[in-house]
Structures are given as C-alpha cells and as structure tokens.
Design a protein around this nucleic acid. Structure first.
Ligand code: ZN
Ligand code: ZN
Ligand code: ZN
Ligand code: ZN
Lengths: 150, 150
DNA sequence: AAAAACCCTATAGCCACTTTAGGGTCAAGC
DNA sequence: GCTTGACCCTAAAGTGGCTATAGGGTTTTT
C-alpha cells in the first residue's frame, strides 16, 4: 500500500466517489489534507484509515453525525464507552424499526400486486381499485402516520 | 364529512402537515385549489380524495413521481394497465432489496452490540475495536459497496 | 504538441419535506 | 373596540448525503 495518495487514488482504494471525499472534508468529517505544490490534496495513512472507518460505518447505515461522534469518542481513549454503546443501541433500534415497517410494506405490496387479476384495462385494474379504495377507507394506518422513508 | 375545507382542516383530516399540502401543490402533484375572497385555499371532495390517495401511496413508500404517474394513468381509464402493474412490480423489487440489506444490517449490528463485553473504557470498547478492525480488514463489503440508505 | 486523464473551486440539484422570516385575517373574550 | 390567539399567506433556506455541472488548471500519455 503506497502512500501518499492523491484524491483519485484514495477514492479508488476506498471505493468512494472522490466528490464524496471532498464533501467529507467540507463538512469537517475528514481533516484537511496536506497540499502538494500544485494544490493537489495529498493523503497519508491516517487519512486512509479514517476514510475506511467512515465508509464501514456508512455501510452500517450510520448517519454522519454518529460517525463524527464515534471519532470524537475514539480521540478520548480514557473516557467512558457507555455513549458509544448507546449510540449503537439507538442505531440498532432505528434499523429494527425500519425493518419492521418494510416487512409490513412488502406484505401490503404483495397483496396489491396480486390484485390485478383480470383486465388489461386501467378502468378494471385491481391495483388501482385497491389503492383508491384503501385510501378512502379508514382501516389503513396511512391516515394517522407519516411515511416510512429512511 | 363537511366540505369545503380550509388547508388546516384538510391537513388534520388527512393526517398531513399543511406545509406538505402546499408543497404538493407547488410541485404540481395536487391541482390548484379555489381561493376564498381573503386568499385562503378552499378544498372540495375531489381534493380530499386525491390527497388521501397520495398519502396512501406514500405510506407504501412510493416516490412522488410514481404517484404522479399513477394519477396520470387513472385519468385515461381506457388505457392499458400494464404500466401500473409494472410500476408496482418495480417498487416491490426496490422494497424487497432494501429489506434484504436491512436484514443483513441488523445482523451485523447485533453482533457489533454484543462486542462490548468487559470495559467501560473507550480504549477497551469492543464495539470500537470491531469497527476499526472491520474497516481495515478486507472481508467487509463496504470496500466495494455504496451505503444502504433509502 | 496534442489529447486524455487527472486535479481544483464554487455552485446547483436530488428527494420529500421542514423550518424560518415576515407578514395578513379572523373569531373570541374583555 | 381592542387585544389575544389561532389560523392563513408567500418566498426562501435548510435537511442528509451525496451527485452533477460549469469552468478552469495540471500532468501524463501518445
Ligand atoms: Zn466494512
Ligand atoms: Zn392492472
Ligand atoms: Zn392508507
Ligand atoms: Zn463499549
């Protein structure tokens, strides 16, 4: 593993778009890199590891604010790790909740798909009928709930 | 069910924030309402039904572009419903995919949570160790993958 | 020497909203 | 009649996590 790296090399190495690296820098998630004489960013081992850490956490779908917090904690090795643990706990709860609502969603969509049985015609499309009927009916959660998203 | 409604009443009735209604209007998802003499928006039955339809579809996590397309199709009742069906099919596939990656995510996070066994100290936190080790190791998908999100 | 590949900055766009700023309108109570 | 509060209006900016575009400079390859 050769160092130092230019931004494109770092991007390739970590499997990240290079705009993403500049974005992380801009929001202060990655520290400012050295600059070569021509103004090009120059990255060393610490940067590489830090970016890998960020990407791993992102692959776990942690928000950037959580990742920033984790990095803060890591910089104070003698502190209490309870906050780290509860950060993960909270994130897990988020994921669990999303998972449950997505499972629910999938069931509904499977039913919906099955509703278009006969016609090819929009007027007779069971899917559209189901959708409009459910929207008007009061059995559905959608009347008191915000969308899933995230 | 009394009509006509002012925007706040419509919002309450449909369980939507009223800014959301104005937003739907602005992007052309909801048609322009009538206006009272004082400039207030005034909604009738058609609007109520249409907003309920949108919210139901949103509760199924459909993107607004899909919902707009559905409304277009509904306006041409003699057309072929194949596009409706495949729109749902595509959406279901999206949901299914997200579901799979969230399930995977939950497993990883459960493991991660279990890693903080002994210390209270950041230096010894198993979670942090796991995270940094995994980020550096090459077994993880994060090196060649984009984050989950949505 | 020219072309391709890489780097730079600054800005706008994506989605589906939410928030903010700065007002106007209307019904109720004193 | 006058204040208080609840409601309504517009326009613009902010959210998250990027991605894309415009308009340039540099370096490497051919
Ligand atoms: Zn990883
Ligand atoms: Zn159909
Ligand atoms: Zn519904
Ligand atoms: Zn711990």
């Amino acid at each position: 593993m050769k160092t130092p790296l230019k931004i494109g090399e770092l991007a390739t190495h970590c499997g990240v778009a290079l705009e993403t690296i500049r974005y992380y820098e801009k929001i202060g998630l990655l520290p400012l890199p050295h600059r070569a004489a021509n103004g090009y960013r120059v990255y060393g081992t610490a940067h590489i590891e830090q970016l890998a850490f960020i990407r791993h956490c992102r692959a776990l779908d942690m928000p950037l604010s959580d990742i920033a917090a984790l990095q803060q904690f890591a910089d104070e090795p003698s502190g209490d790790c309870g906050e780290i643990d509860s950060l993960i706990e909270t994130h897990l709860a988020r994921v669990h909740e999303r998972l449950a609502s997505l499972q629910n969603l999938e069931r509904q969509l499977l039913n919906l798909r099955a509703a278009c049985t006969s016609g090819r015609c929009v007027q007779e499309c069971g899917i559209l009928h189901e959708l409009t009927a459910a929207a008007q009916g009061d059995g559905c959660v959608c009347h008191s709930q915000t969308p899933v998203s995230n």
